[in-house]
Structure formats: structure tokens, C-alpha cells
């Protein structure tokens, strides 16, 4: 075990994957210089060397700023024998390659009747909560949940980031990883051994019996903090982190709601057609009989993200907002309208 940050764990997974299989390559903007600390042995280039030294320029490649061809070429390479990891840096940059994601990456295996394999991972980071303004703060995973054929991981801890990424590289299907910049500095003990976390298997981040909080990405630690605060009020909240949104561990969520009878979904994406909306709909369709109160979503309101810290911070699911939502599903009069 070693203490790893969220970013450090991603770097460790990439190094393991590169060492394990020569077909794994990393392409993307600025990957050679280890700008984000995920393409080197340590945080800086001087610290134990970077991937360029370790694996050579054939397998680690800086790209031009051309997202459409980066994504399409990674798909074509995956269809013909490579297993690329693509670093797209900011999640908002994915839109530049929307045609390739939707029409090629997601559809080729299906529309060619299973002839194509698409073992490719597209990594991107959501720079929300960091005052980067409207163009860099997006949390766009729900848009891609709406595209059959893609798999989506949203790790909320260093251990999950490492184990899920190893699985993602092994899969013969395309995976999009949405990494949460607010969690970059999060540190915990992570195994230095190789391990893999399967897709479609959620994690109970905290056990409880009165209410189920399904939390996504940075809403996981916020929900755990809310649950701890609620404990003092005699409320026992269970926090579930699905870890992957496609496939989604529906059984874990339904099983928890069957016990608690109440559901709050905390999701940093926009409210309309967000991940929370889909999870709420599944529970309403399949576990309505278990519900003792209406489902409540704690999501980002349907507005753009402003620059000023005074404006931005209020928009995402916070421990206070999540706690207020829990009190509401438990029948208390809403103390505040926290945008839930």
C-alpha cells in the first residue's frame, strides 16, 4: 500500500497498463511532458522519469490540437490492433469530436454486426469548482450516457480511479472516463499491486438504513460528509457510489431503496436529463412500491457556470444541500431551499 492522490493513482494505472501490454499506447495533447502528472513515474518529470523515457516515442505521442482526428484515429487504431488510451484533458473538449464519438466510436461495433472491436479509453477531466469559467467547467457524462455503445466511469476515489482504469484498458469496448478535478488532491492508501474493479459494480461508501443517497463523482465525499452530519440528528443515511454509469449497478441501488424506502440522488451534472434523472426514473419505474417519499435530486441547476467564486460554488451538490434533501425526504419541513 502507498498513499496516492487521485491523479497519482491514474498515473499508476497508466504505467501498469503500458508495462502489461505493448499494444497500449497513450496519445493526447501534452502527454510527453507529463503536464498533469499522469504520464510519469512521479509527479514531476525529474522524479523517476516520464513515460517518454520509459516507453519511447512510438507508444507515447503528443498530438496536435485536433480532437476530431485524435478521437477518430484512436478508434481506427483500436479497430486494427492497438489499445489506445487517449488523454483529451478537459471534458469540454469532447464536443469538438462529437461526430467521432457518436457516429464511429459508439456505433461501429454494432452497425458492422460485431466485426469491430473498440478497445479504447478516452480520459478527460471535469474542471468544475475551480473558477475556470463556462468553457472548462462542464460535467458532460449524461450526454454520453445517452449514446448506446459507450461505457462511462466516474471514479470518486484514488483506489477506484486506479482499479477502474485498469479494467477500462482491458475491455474491448470504448470507455469514457470523467475525472473530477475537485478530487485531484484527494489522497488515500492505494494498493501498489495490480488490481481491477469491474464495471457495473457500485460501492457502498457508507452504510445506513433511513435513506439511500446515490452520489456521483465529487458528490460522493460531499454525501458522506452529509451522512456524518445527519448521524448527529439520528438519521442513518446510506451512500452509494455507482462508480460506473454505463453499465449502472441498478441492483445495488434498488436493493438499498428497498431497505430504506427513500432516495436522494446527488449529481454534479445539470438537472435536466442528468444521471440523477435516469437513476430516479429507474427507481420510480422499478421500485415505486418501496418508496415512502418522493425522490429528490440534488443536481446543478440548468444554468451555465459563472466565473466568480461567489457565483460558482453554490451551484454544485454540497454537503448542506444534500443534508437538506435528506431531511426533506424524511418528512421534515424544508429548512432551506437549497436548490434541490
Amino acid at each position: 500500500m502507498a498513499v496516492m492522490s487521485y491523479l497519482g493513482a491514474i498515473g499508476a494505472a497508466q504505467r501498469e497498463a503500458m508495462e502489461a501490454d505493448e499494444r497500449v499506447v497513450i496519445i493526447g495533447e501534452d502527454v510527453e511532458a507529463n503536464v498533469y502528472g499522469t504520464t510519469g513515474a512521479g509527479k514531476s518529470r525529474k522524479d523517476k522519469g516520464d513515460f517518454l523515457e520509459m516507453f519511447g516515442s512510438n507508444r507515447i505521442r503528443n498530438t496536435p490540437i485536433s480532437e476530431e482526428v485524435i478521437v477518430g484515429a484512436a478508434a481506427g487504431a483500436a479497430m486494427t490492433g492497438l489499445r489506445p488510451i487517449v488523454d483529451l484533458s478537459y471534458s469540454s473538449f469532447l464536443y469538438m469530436a462529437m461526430d467521432q464519438f457518436v457516429n464511429q466510436v459508439a456505433k461501429n461495433r454494432y452497425m458492422f454486426g460485431g466485426q469491430a472491436s473498440m478497445p479504447v479509453v478516452f480520459r478527460s477531466a471535469m474542471f468544475y469548482g475551480l473558477n475556470t469559467g463556462a468553457h472548462h467547467s462542464d460535467r458532460p457524462y449524461p450526454m454520453f450516457m445517452n449514446v448506446p455503445g459507450l461505457k462511462i466511469m466516474v471514479p470518486a476515489s484514488p483506489s477506484d480511479a486506479k482499479g477502474l482504469l485498469r479494467t477500462a484498458v482491458d475491455l474491448d469496448d470504448p470507455v469514457l472516463t470523467f475525472e473530477a478535478c475537485p478530487l485531484w488532491g484527494l489522497k488515500e492508501e492505494v494498493s501498489e499491486e495490480e488490481y481491477r474493479i469491474p464495471f457495473g459494480v457500485g460501492r457502498v461508501a457508507r452504510e445506513g438504513s433511513d435513506v439511500t443517497i446515490v452520489a456521483i463523482s465529487s458528490a460522493v465525499p460531499e454525501s458522506v460528509a452529509a451522512a456524518e452530519a445527519l448521524q448527529a440528528e439520528g438519521i442513518s443515511a446510506e451512500v452509494i457510489d455507482p462508480r460506473t454509469l454505463v453499465p449502472l449497478d441498478v441492483d445495488l441501488i434498488l436493493g438499498s431503496v428497498a431497505r430504506t424506502g427513500r432516495l436522494v440522488v446527488a449529481d454534479p451534472a445539470h438537472r435536466t436529463c442528468g444521471a440523477a434523472a435516469e437513476i430516479s426514473a429507474i427507481v420510480a419505474e422499478e421500485a415505486f412500491d418501496s418508496l415512502r417519499a418522493p425522490i429528490v435530486r440534488v443536481a446543478t441547476p440548468d444554468t451555465q457556470i459563472p466565473f466568480s467564486p461567489a457565483l460558482e460554488k453554490q451551484l454544485y451538490p454540497s454537503r448542506d444541500g444534500i443534508a437538506a434533501a435528506v431531511r426533506r425526504v424524511l418528512g421534515a419541513r424544508p429548512l432551506i431551499d437549497a436548490g434541490v
Binding site: V69, G72, A73, G76, M79, T80, Q100
Partner: peptide
């Protein structure tokens, strides 16, 4: 839309 796909097949051939 398939132009980048063929480009990627060339990348795999090269690597």
C-alpha cells in the same frame, strides 16, 4: 467521418 478511422488504422500499422 471515416477519414479519421482510416488514419487510425495507419497509426496502428506504424506502431
Amino acid at each position: 467521418s471515416s477519414i479519421p478511422i482510416a488514419t487510425g488504422a495507419a497509426l496502428s500499422a506504424k506502431v
